[in-house]
Write a protein that binds this DNA or RNA. Structure first.
Lengths: 214, 214, 214, 214
DNA sequence: TATGAATGAGTCTTCATTCAT
DNA sequence: CATGAATGAAGACTCATTCAT
């Protein structure tokens, strides 16, 4: 994952430029491993400007959650939208592809999410959970409980774990992408192949064993 | 995840005590977020002793990789062992359960692995990849390529991605465990339930669609 | 001492408003402890305006000395005026009451004077001493030397120290006023009581022992 | 007031050396105007050592209050001791001389006290008031109320203000001492002369008007 | 006049690391 | 082995000041 410095510097609004610089560096080095000065340098301003716009590093994190994770990623994936339109299995497939596609525009997302949202002690974890409404509108779990009752989903599946399973199957490999090629265990894989792999796994994995599938 | 200070302090060898203290703190706060002094304090020695035993923080990380990850975790899971005995699908199931069980003795493992091994810029990533032999003896990928050729495994599955899928399905939920209960999306889940969920997903997900299953 | 923000904001001339805001904040937090931005905020302008009117913080201090201390306080107390009209002891009494009354309109004066004029290293000290004419017109000392020679004043009194004694007896208690009530050593005291106390002390303290007094 | 760097550096205990360096600089430049680095430099150590011994600048202030103000000054003046032995007027005289003599060993005391203890917003004010027992054992006020009832003290004197009057008459001139010589209003005065002046003022000022005095 | 944006020089604080004892 | 003392380098944050508009 190479940081596109020139692309970041096309952003004219210094505040937005700083936010963009931040997520790239956070993704690559972790939040604790990134200094305010590095962010400033990548955005071509002084480190004092970071404090001018965000007051403290911690409030910069708040802004990243609000504007980058919720504002950009959530809006792009639009999870709430998906669930209203489709069957349970289609919902999952849909989600997988939306996440994978979202990372085209936001390659910084998978590492950031895995490290700082999902990991114990991640710096964005509580901020995102606390964030107004996160997960509330989303009745992912309920949809799968119903689907199970209707006999459309394998009973051994735990509806509560399903969301995490999707995250683990998609974001985790995407966050490792940088060294894919070096690890003989994995080899070179495209995002298309990842999507096909994950949806195949889930489509069959969720289905009721022995049932008809196209 | 509560750090078992009294249990750590039962270890008489100060060097091993420091290693144990280190992995617990690294898991909870990340490596960058943990100071040498904190590790020393948890192990009831002075921070100067940490340098006496490990010379630098970086060399302490080397020791964690060698003795905790490879020495304890790999040995416990014994991946190489599994693959020699079983069919492809059983191999995966077996792996899942071994990993889940390993975390009983090493609750620090999932967060540490996700954050510092798998994440981009993780402090243990290169150290582990460089580590003599890691991944070399393991012909996970090859086994599944063969199984696919024999028609035992769904062709849409990518053998190279499978190892990461298993990691994502098991370690990621385990590393999030701390806040499971607070997230309505997930709810309270036991390790047994996680194991059942993941193996169900994989067993069916890997199988050839339409084939017989018990 | 509560800062009367609404009263300050009644001043229409921004420059004067800034001066007023400055003395209140300087009195409460000390000059070093007060930022240009705080002054600006209290005066409802931007900090850039402070520099527009005063160029630098140091020149703002010059203006405070000229316009607030000399211009307002000295003018109000009018020390030079007093000394021309009265006997030595009356002069002192008069001075005490003028100072005490002055603080009705300028409650910021005692702390500012004690801290920044009289204290070693006070930021206004040299500025005031250097200030054209300060102390020159005032022949306080000479008046008491003469009064002593005429046998009207106790010989043990040091004429040179008398001015400082008056300051110490009046301004110091006034600058502590805020916490008067909390200190059991002192208790609640009004300005009237302070004036009576100080004049009593000085009247008798200055008089020749054994002489007639009403 | 010249800071005796060589004398400070005779102190072998680095912690005590830092405390001594601190009070001198605080007295000369105010607490806000003194950097941790300056203190360290005067004590011939790194600024990191200040944090090694005192953790934060604020905790250094706590130590200054405990060990320098209470521990050294209060102990030296031993106010509680005085009041048990003497008449009301002698008590005051005694206090004046003890304070003046104390400043021989602690020339930093008067400026520090005036600026940071007595001044509004002084950094040591609350710390000292909060300090266990300060002012509690001292029944200065009560002694003078009794003396007034016995007709030994002028009724116009306010017993509650007397302690502050003593402070104002002694510490304030002492804190101005540095520039005594430059101010024509005052001229050059020795500590002996100050003591005589203040005790004369108080002795007569407190006495009942018209009564016999030697 | 008036302001938002920008900065450089500091200031407090942390931390890995070293070393004499 | 063990430690307290010591440090240099770096990091977050502040603030007076400037400038284009």
């Amino acid at each position: 994952m190479k940081i596109p410095k020139d692309q970041i510097n096309k952003i004219t609004d210094a505040r937005l430029r700083l936010l963009e610089a931040a997520v790239w560096l956070f993704a690559e080095q972790g939040i604790n491993g990134t200094t305010v000065a590095e962010i400033a340098q990548l955005a071509d301003v002084t480190s004092a400007m970071v404090h001018y716009y965000f007051k403290t590093k911690d409030q910069l994190l708040d802004a990243v959650v609000d504007e980058k994770l919720v504002g950009e990623f959530f809006t792009f994936v639009d999870v709430v939208q998906i669930q209203e339109q489709t069957s349970a299995i289609e919902l999952v497939e849909n989600l997988v592809w939306r996440i994978i596609n979202a990372t085209d525009k936001m390659p910084w997302l998978p590492p950031l999410w895995i490290r700082e949202v999902l990991s114990e002690g991640g710096m964005l974890r509580e901020k995102l959970i606390v964030h107004a409404g996160f997960g509330k509108k989303l009745n992912f779990k309920e949809i799968f409980i119903m689907a199970q009752q209707e006999g459309k989903i394998n009973n051994e599946i735990d509806p509560g774990l399903l969301f995490l399973s999707v995250m683990g199957l998609t974001l985790l490999p995407l966050s490792v992408a940088k060294s894919w090629e070096c690890i003989p265990l994995i080899g070179k894989v495209s995002k298309q192949e990842l999507g096909k792999h994950v949806t195949a796994l889930l489509k069959n994995g969720l289905a009721v064993p022995g049932s008809e599938r196209k």
